[in-house]
Computed example of a mutant assay.
Amino acid sequence: MISRSCPCGLPVPYGACCGRFHSGGGAAPTAEALMRSRYCAFVRQDAAYLLRTWHPRTRPAHLDLDPATRWTGLEILGTTGGSAFHATGTVEFRASYRGGSLHEESRFERSGGAWVYVDGDFPG
Rank of each mutant, 00 (worst) to 15 (best):
M1A: 12
M1V: 15
S3M: 13
R4M: 12
R4H: 13
S5W: 11
C8P: 02
C8L: 05
C8R: 06
L10E: 12
P13Y: 07
P13H: 06
C18H: 11
F21I: 07
F21G: 01
F21D: 10
G25W: 08
L34Q: 11
L34E: 11
R36E: 11
S37K: 07
Y39E: 03
Y39M: 10
A47P: 02
A47L: 05
Y49T: 03
Y49M: 10
Y49P: 02
L50T: 07
L51P: 04
L51W: 07
T53W: 03
T53Q: 09
R57T: 15
R59Y: 01
H62K: 14
L63N: 05
D64T: 14
P67D: 12
T69A: 14
R70F: 07
I76E: 08
G78V: 10
T80N: 07
G81E: 10
S83G: 15
H86A: 14
A87Q: 15
T90D: 03
E92F: 07
F93T: 12
A95Q: 08
L102D: 14
L102Y: 08
H103K: 10
E104Y: 08
E104V: 06
S106C: 02
R107G: 01
R107M: 01
E109N: 04
R110D: 04
S111H: 15
S111K: 03
G112W: 06
V116D: 02
V118F: 04
D119E: 13
F122T: 15
P123W: 04
P123Y: 06
G124H: 12
